[in-house]
Each structure stands twice: as structure tokens, then as C-alpha cells.
Amino acid sequence: MSRPYRLLALGLPLLLLALAACSPLTALNALSPAGATDSVEGLAYGEGARRKLDVYRPRDQRGPAPVVVFFYGGNWVGGERGDYAFVGRALAARGIVTIVADYRLHPEVSYPDFLRDAAQAVAWAHREAARYGGDPRRLYVMGHSAGAYNAAMVALDERWLQEQGMATADLRGWIGLAGPYDFLPIENPTTKPVFHFPDTPPDSQPVRHVAAGTPPALLIAAHKDKLVEPERNTGQLAKLLRARQVPVRELYYGSVTHTTLVASIAAPLRWLAPTLDDVAAFVLKPGA
């Protein structure tokens, strides 16, 4: 039996028991110990309960570490930063200061307010990361699903960081996991009011903002994604970036779905895909 399947056989009963007792994300957090990492939780980057973030950092780092700001998915209507502690711990254990940020959701807000929140969180990281061992000169933005959309728009559309006194050039790169980058006309009934359908602005789409000189990208998707079509979104965006000479790495995994792609970052599910390895390699590559 191969090593991944031995690990699966050993860990699956425990994982199934945890999933039965609580939500899947809570289980992943419970089965993803902090290890040699520390966290500071509930820091405000703006006003209100949804403008807060948690910082995860390596315990014994040597010198300033790269910084990743992570935004979770949830179709812009749900999600909590605490549910994604496993992402913060995993990246911090690889030597990356990681910030997991909340942002306001519909119906409290709609497009583009959550992008202003995302940019504000990134600006906080640029300003404050050094306090937590981070190097603001090596700043990345990352997200999954709706969070990948947020990351893409912050990295590609100058408007949002400019409002914070920054530029997309202040980012060393960005990472998108199963992101929706081209979804007009909107078909999902939950998403329609978020983007003012049928009057959705065309420039709400990340593919409209690809230009030479935008930050390098790592785009990862699942072949089996039934929610965000990988070729139209990840594939098309990668093609547009390459056409403008923007460095991009495009990866597709065969053993994950839209949801388990981000879950594969957690220790119990890393046998599914090398998501953590590929993200860490992108952020920690020599010269980055």
C-alpha cells in the first residue's frame, strides 16, 4: 500500500468521527495542531465586527518572513476567519506570516464594498506585518473561491489598493484557488443580488483588468470543480496573463473538488493534492 493510502487508512476513522461531531471546517481545525506556530486573533483593520483578522506566524523564524493575506470563500454571503485557522497554521509552519481576514458580506454590503474591505486588510498587512515578523516587501494575497475573486481584484484592479495609498506593484504576487474570474451573465441566484444583477458592472470581472506589469500569479483549480468551471475561469485568466507577459503558473488537480481543494491544505487531507507544497513553493521561491 502506498504511503498516501496508508495515511488515509490510519487517519480516516478519526476524521470521520470528527466530521460527525461538528462541522467539516471545525474538524479540520481540530485535526490541524498549531505546532511551532503562534497566533494573534481578533485584530481590527477597520471599523465593525467583520473588519477583523487573525495573524499566524512561525514560532522560531530567522529574519523577516514573507506575508500572505488569505480570504476564504462562501459566495460573498458566508464565512468566518476562525474556520480557516488550518490555512494560517499550515502556511505559518512553512515559514510564512499568514493573515486570515474577515470581510463584510451580503446583505450587509454588495459589490464592490467587500473589495474595499479586502484592500484595507492588505493595507493593514503592508503597514503592520513587521510587528509580527513579516516582511512587507514580500507581500502576497491569496484566496479560495469568492476569496480568490477578492484576491484577484485586489491584485489586478488598481482602484482598490489606490484607495488605501498603495499600488498593485506593492504585491509580490497572488494565489487563486478555484476562483471565479469571469462569471457574466450570473446564473447563481445567491450571487445575483451581490453583484446587482441584471445591472452587474462589466468591470466587476477580473478578466477585464489583466495588464502588463500586474503581479505574478499562481492559479490552482480542480478538474472536478462543479461550481466554478475551471477552464473558463482559471484557464482563461492564465491565458490572458501570459499574453501580457505576466508570470503565471497554472495547475489543475484531479483528486479534489471545489471544496476539498482548500481543505487539502489541512494536515489530514494533504494526501489529496499538493496544494500546500505548491503555494509554499510559489511564496518561498528563491529571489521572491
Rank of each mutant, 00 (worst) to 15 (best):
202 P>F: 07
221 A>L: 12
226 K>Y: 08
234 T>R: 04
195 F>C: 01
216 P>N: 07
204 S>M: 09
210 V>E: 09
193 P>M: 08
234 T>W: 04
216 P>V: 09
210 V>L: 01
216 P>T: 11
206 P>D: 11
229 E>Y: 03
229 E>W: 04
205 Q>D: 10
217 A>N: 06
203 D>K: 03
225 D>W: 04
223 H>N: 13
229 E>P: 03
200 T>W: 00
217 A>S: 11
218 L>Y: 06
232 R>V: 15
228 V>H: 07
214 T>E: 06
220 I>F: 11
230 P>H: 01
193 P>V: 03
225 D>T: 11
222 A>M: 05
198 P>V: 00
227 L>A: 14
216 P>D: 15
214 T>Q: 10
221 A>I: 09
199 D>S: 13
217 A>G: 08
194 V>W: 01
215 P>N: 06
194 V>M: 02
232 R>G: 14
224 K>A: 15
223 H>M: 13
225 D>N: 06
209 H>E: 15
223 H>W: 14
221 A>T: 15
197 F>D: 14
196 H>P: 02
209 H>Y: 13
193 P>Q: 03
203 D>A: 08
224 K>Q: 13
231 E>S: 08
233 N>Y: 06
208 R>K: 11
194 V>F: 03
206 P>M: 04
225 D>G: 09
232 R>H: 15
196 H>Y: 07
219 L>S: 10
213 G>L: 00
194 V>C: 02
208 R>H: 13
224 K>D: 15
194 V>S: 04
198 P>M: 05
223 H>A: 14
208 R>G: 10
234 T>D: 13
234 T>M: 10
207 V>E: 02
197 F>V: 12
222 A>V: 08
197 F>K: 03
210 V>A: 05
202 P>C: 04
196 H>L: 05
208 R>I: 12
217 A>T: 11
215 P>E: 06
215 P>V: 08
195 F>Q: 01
209 H>V: 15
208 R>Q: 15
219 L>P: 14
195 F>E: 02
217 A>Y: 06
200 T>I: 09
196 H>V: 04
231 E>H: 07
211 A>P: 11
230 P>T: 02
211 A>H: 14
225 D>R: 04
194 V>D: 07
211 A>M: 09
198 P>W: 01
234 T>K: 09
209 H>S: 11
202 P>Y: 05
232 R>C: 13
195 F>K: 00
209 H>K: 09
217 A>W: 09
227 L>S: 12
217 A>K: 07
197 F>S: 12
200 T>Y: 00
208 R>V: 14
228 V>S: 05
228 V>F: 07
206 P>Y: 03
192 K>G: 06
202 P>N: 10
203 D>G: 13
202 P>A: 05
212 A>V: 12
213 G>D: 05
214 T>L: 08
214 T>A: 13
195 F>Y: 08
224 K>G: 12
193 P>K: 00
230 P>F: 01
232 R>P: 09
224 K>E: 15
210 V>P: 08
225 D>Q: 11
193 P>C: 07
200 T>F: 02
230 P>E: 00
213 G>S: 00
226 K>I: 11
201 P>I: 11
216 P>R: 10
